[in-house]
Design a protein around this nucleic acid. Structure first.
Lengths: 221, 221, 221, 221
DNA sequence: AATGAATGAGCTTTCATTCAT
DNA sequence: CATGAATGAAAGCTCATTCAT
């Protein structure tokens, strides 16, 4: 079920273009602003050039096409996926608290407007060029599942939890955390939750999860 | 958390357009085929007109714009959401089996290529005109949560299950059912599961769910 | 050696476009002026639209592409090839005079600026899309050879000339007529000849031709 | 009628450009390959630079513009015109054989794909910058006529042929040789002839030519 | 001299929309 | 109501040319 975030799918490699001068970053910054403002289809190369402060021709010195530029942008942003930034505090002896904190952070980051925008763009483009969505998926949901499953595995090894399939449990946990709020935000039916609401939803998920996979009390502690 | 599938959000009302003559259906049919074949942006009004067998001008007699046509189409398709078509068999005394059957159907319908296409289109458009996505969300995920929460509420009333928040539990159940496979399909990282795989995933979700919310044995049966 | 001017080579049929309204002629007229002014590559669709007095979009209602428009134009002009317009006066009993008159006309028409322009365009395009050049060749040089060979065949049948290969003789006659002046005009090394010069060159060709294929005196005339 | 291949017409003199360093030859070689591969318009300066192995900027150190580079290339290739490479064997006592051999070679060289390419390019450009075409014409057809007329003049001086206008006769001979096959090849209606076909056409031209200008038998030989 | 990054005008083509018939 | 010809704005992309290094 889990896909390791390795070997990202590629479609249109950057091809030529100068190695990595500041102009490239300038273009990426302009592209980020432009794509985030209007989405992939509705953003024109002219708009990107204007926002980047370079000529339209320069865009094509660094990127072969609009698709390639978008792909490179998503690639660059993989490292900022909500799931990449959120970890479970393995040092916290209070498992419920650790999971709740993690889940709260995840909800807040996943539902941040910029993240939603990126997600929408990437999904929208998935029909025509799947590489960005695939890479994003592996760096995001798959990575998130790996983080949680690793944590659960450790708990299991420590005898604090009984789990037959940590990976499945991790996906289920993350699913319960995100879906109730993320789906509404993604579909434009509600806005991002504030911290209090996020924590409440996190609690709900943790509660159900620990009911299904009860912690084993440590005799000596 | 749940949004009742009532009062659909509107953005671009159909304005003029005859009430419901056969020509309108003809256009809708053409639009459905065209949009599903190529997505919103890549579909031209000319293509729709050709597929519908009417002139381009006629399109504008019934719909104010391409957006309005798309919105109307999504509106019309609300009734065919995966969640609208899938029910829990309340008559089945075997709750685990009823839930597994439901979840299997849901997975298969949600990951069907046409459904994925529609979902992508609707998400892609959510930035620029949110109405379709909202309506779709309410008729889909919200409706699905309502179905399950209703079923759970009945079980609770029958004393077969103890639940403090049936709605929350319903969202969590649906989340565990869909996410592990849907997210991969939606992001283009995997293809739709076959019946066997769908059932396996359904079992996994039901197992965890019933571990968290254990059934109460009926003494007299 | 001769290619019958039948079944013209096609490459990009006109495809859609309204049947044959005045707008189409308007576009063709604009295209003619524009292409003749600058050649195929150097003429832009915008320039054609301006010269035709229509919008750029309208061009594409009638023609699929710039190539298709050019091909249609050459097609239309086939009928105005120099060779199509020039005939040998079979009624003239003075063969030398008939041939000289024909050759003079041919030289004048072939070296007319418009004809040279068209020829250059068609040759220039022959690499990328050969259909126009082929059609032009069949309607031009091949047709011209057919006219002369027909005339020669009649002379032969009438016993006025002995010829083993009328077609070959016809090509040779036409070659002698056109090359000395046409090649210089086509290559931009000289301008079109006036009537006097054209007649002088015609005489030269006829003289040599009749030296090679002497007329047989009619005993009874 | 004949233009001596002297003082080539110039239009865009090379201006700056170092006299003749190896880099210049390198560029010319790249330009030759590029122009021959794609024609004048379809060849970009970038392509030339790549094929030449120099930077785009360097191109402009040696040549003022794309046109100037093309002009210089055609200039340089004058020496390789088909007509420059083909001579009549004045030592051969068999005039018909000498002419046939010459004509066969000429046909083969003129219809060679590279020659056709060059001819098309030069004709295509003749409208916008006439110098290349003029130079090509003088080095080609004019030179060819000069070769033949010189040969004929010698025959005349030797009493083997009676000719009032050797130059005119030379043009007519060359015309009969090339036109029947060259025109078809140039217009894309047929491919280059093989040696056998070329010789057959050569024989046809020589036969007619010698019928028009019969050889005078040498009494003492 | 040589480079190659940068430019910006210009290209062909598409398309949602309008409107006279 | 229905048509389809006509539009014009804009899109992605190319390329000859320049210039600071």
């Amino acid at each position: 079920m889990t896909r390791p975030p390795q070997e990202p799918a590629t479609q249109t490699p950057d091809a030529g273009g100068p190695a990595h001068p500041p102009k490239r970053d300038q273009i990426m910054a302009g592209a980020r602003r432009a794509f985030f403002a209007s989405g992939f289809e509705a953003t024109s190369m002219g708009e990107i050039a204007r926002k980047a402060g370079v000529s339209k021709g320069t865009l094509y010195v660094y990127f072969d096409s609009k698709e390639a530029l978008f792909t490179a942008l998503v690639e660059e942003m993989r490292g900022q996926c909500a799931e990449q930034l959120t970890a479970v505090d393995a040092a916290d002896p209070d498992v419920a608290r650790a999971l709740t904190t993690y889940a709260t952070q995840l909800i807040l980051r996943l539902s941040a407007p910029d993240h939603i925008r990126l997600l929408r763009m990437v999904i929208a483009a998935a029909d025509r060029f799947p590489a960005p969505a695939q890479n994003f998926y592996r760096a995001g949901p798959c990575h998130g599942a790996a983080i949680v499953s690793g944590y659960l595995r450790n708990l299991h090894a420590a005898g604090r939890l009984h789990l037959s399939d940590p990976e499945r449990a991790a996906w289920q946990f993350n699913a319960m955390v995100m879906v109730p709020v993320m789906s509404g935000v993604l579909m434009g039916d509600r806005s991002a939750p504030d911290a209090a609401e996020a924590e409440a939803m996190a609690r709900g998920a943790v509660e159900t999860f620990l009911a299904a996979f009860p912690l084993i009390d440590q005799p000596g502690s």
